[in-house]
């Protein structure tokens, strides 16, 4: 099987639509086929990292719960846009996962290097 470097970008805020949950489905499917995956939270998407979320009773999927387990799926390349939390005054919030930050310049590079980009 040909390996493709897949970059999944999540830019939509949690619960804003079904897109973030769809992004997780794409990620898990690609991981099942052992493709090298990079996950990047950008813009409003960084809010998926906030650990205080609780979607119980809403009927919507809280994808943040899955993030600490991605390591078991061999998805260890998880990043967020630099300053995106600080711009929202969320830099001191507790996160579900410690992830490295990428500058916009590094994000541009990541997009160029990927074979396939899924932008949610």
């Amino acid at each position: 099987m040909t390996l493709k470097n897949i970059l999944i970008i999540i830019r939509q805020a949690p619960y804003s639509s079904l897109l973030p949950a769809a992004a997780l489905d794409v990620l898990l499917t690609a991981a099942a086929f052992e493709q090298p995956i990079t996950l990047l939270f950008m813009g409003e998407g960084v809010q998926h990292l906030l650990s205080a979320q609780n979607s119980t009773g809403s009927g919507m999927k809280n994808i943040s719960k899955a993030l600490p387990s991605l390591e078991l799926y061999e998805v260890d390349q998880v990043f967020m846009e630099k300053d995106a939390l600080a711009n929202r005054k969320l830099e001191n919030e507790k996160l579900v996962l410690q992830v490295e930050s990428l500058s916009l310049n590094q994000i541009a590079d990541a997009i160029e290097k990927a074979d396939q980009v899924f932008n949610f």
Partner: peptide, 15 residues
């Protein structure tokens, strides 16, 4: 904000 975010990335890009 798609266009705005896309522009921010391209602005910061070296190529």
């Amino acid at each position: 904000s798609a266009l705005n975010e896309c522009l921010s990335v391209l602005e910061a890009s070296n190529n």
